[in-house]
Design a protein around this nucleic acid. Structure first.
Lengths: 321, 321
DNA sequence: TCAAAAGTGTTATCCTTACACCCATGT
DNA sequence: ACATGGGTGTAAGGATAACACTTTTGA
């Protein structure tokens, strides 16, 4: 049954009322579950694609799925052969109709240890400007790239604004990319992506102009990736999620390089160690590893029992070098 | 196949298409947009309901909505007469089929200044244990309530666990409700709700046993509220969102009481003032207000231009009293 | 004059940052 | 011997928390 009423405060309104009869008004809508599954392999942060590098594992929510999470796990397992461990919801997007149908994408972030099998891609293939790791004293390739390619594009975008807009555009560009003497904030990855999109510097924007390097993805999947990266980088600073990415037993050096891989930034060694040990997040296993290239390192394991507590407390991480 | 198209003055349009060819992949699915709209009125935190206190403003996502946010705004405006200002997405829930159909709820948090019109309810009618404001020296009613009603219920729940479970249950209860010498964390509102749910101490759990006071809501709307409260309390600590809730010009006392209303906890006056002023979040208007009951207070206004910057920096708030 | 709220100043403490340095292993 | 990464100590700086105190109004 359909009921249309028009009235109210000058603006016309349409009201659809669903009566208890049957599914007379089922909207033509589909909900897609999308997974961003991340691991770190040999200091390279990787994500799981469904075969080709331009597609994330995804599938429609079906009525036989007990929950969205279990539906997601089913799709990922079917398309990639992987079982999901840690999973958290990211964001829900409404694809504003490529075709006639309304599509909703509910995206999830998953973390895992295993990186066997095909389909794993380097995160920084999609966001080359985000990896600012480099040996001390060396300028990271990503920084050079920002200087040579991103900055000119943004300068043009700033200049193209109206007189009013220019100031705000300038400040926004500076904050996002650490220009004008500001510092680089790893967790602004999404804001950087959105800025590049708005300024037309990436292919998805469809402006046809010159674009910054970086693998694109179908529909809005690269935006989902950027959302995931921002969230992960922010979260790693106050929740002990790194431990989902390292083996049961690990050295502090391994742990640090894992965080650095995700943060895209070197960390201060001594402070990192002190923070991790000082917070009683880990305990020694008793054995040590001599695979290090230098002095053998003690092996640690994560104290799973802190997971309850750290809802509150947090896991601070030290900044650069 | 059903197709309805209604056009009114070029604004509203509804197109519903149901294909009967391949509905093997078209699930019987609807997406509901749910709004949690918050304001603070005379130091009382309030939220907007659609008429009755047991319902939040909500409505299905329709194909004529340009985006989920605009769809949400339309429903809220129609059902309550209110225009939304600040809006952010909260979480997406899958109501695991009360009836046969699959329903997805995409929830949003909205903040606003105006509290005119009907439908505003006190937040703490739904979560009476969350309001721990009280004059110095007085035990808050909420604290007494936890001692008298919540604690016994949790103790029983802890005792009912297997030997293995008891330790974890005890710790979880202690962390959530600040028992056993721990401190109370306002932003754990969701965890507290979920714990009460699991332990059967609220009507939604449907265990039929004795329950803790507090207005329930239909389906899972009270869980959505708890999610919103946790998020808002967490966010207020590091983003300048309070300013969405106070008038253009305000005193520091007003601002503090607004934060306290949401945090459900008194703050340390001197440190609050220093933090707010020290971060250059506000500027003096030049005038002052003598509605204070004591010495007249300077009026301040929010410096809107910091909104860009504070993506990074944050707005720390001081703790108790 | 007193209560009530605004507003200022100062100090102790903790956490972060940064720097300097020693240790144990492989080549 | 020395390069490489593991591991420890300690001091400077900044932010927070806590306390004491003054100022300005209305009743």
């Amino acid at each position: 049954m359909l009921e249309v009423s028009i009235s109210q405060s000058g603006v016309s309104e349409v009201v659809l009322v669903q009566r208890d009869g049957q599914d007379d008004l089922v909207p033509d809508l589909s909900a897609e579950l999308v997974a961003v599954v991340t691991a770190v392999d040999a200091d390279v942060p990787v994500l799981l694609t469904a075969g080709e590098p331009e597609r994330l594992p995804a599938g429609p929510l079906r009525s036989d799925h007990r929950s969205m999470q279990s539906g997601l796990s089913a799709w990922v397992e079917q398309q990639t052969g992987h079982r999901l461990g840690y999973v958290e919801q990211l964001y829900t997007f409404a694809d504003s109709g490529r075709d006639e149908r309304r599509a909703i994408s509910v995206s999830y972030l998953g973390l895992t240890r295993t990186t066997d099998g095909p389909g794993w891609q380097d995160w920084y293939a999609y966001f080359p400007w985000e990896d600012r790791r480099a040996p001390s004293g060396v300028v990271p390739a990503a920084a050079a790239m920002v200087d040579d390619l991103v900055r000119p594009a943004l300068d043009a975008w700033v200049a193209a604004g109206t007189t009013d807009e220019r100031d705000r555009r300038r400040r926004r560009a500076d904050i996002c990319f650490g220009l004008g003497g500001r510092h680089w904030s790893p967790e602004l990855a999404l804001q950087r992506y959105e800025l590049l999109y708005e300024s037309g510097a990436i292919p998805e924007a469809g402006t046809g102009g010159p674009t910054v390097p970086g693998q694109a993805m179908q529909s809005d999947h690269r935006r989902i990736l950027a959302t995931a990266l921002s969230r992960l980088r922010a979260k790693i600073q106050y929740r002990p999620v790194v431990f989902e990415l390292v083996p049961d037993s690990f050295t502090l050096g391994q742990l640090q390089r894992t965080v650095e891989a995700l943060a895209g930034q070197p960390l201060h060694k001594q402070n990192f160690r002190r923070l991790v040990t000082g917070q009683e997040l880990v305990e020694e296993t008793g054995s040590s590893s001599s695979q290090t290239g230098g002095r053998p390192a003690r092996l640690y394991r994560f104290r799973r029992d802190v997971l309850d507590e750290r809802h509150v407390a947090g896991t601070k991480l030290p900044s650069v070098r």
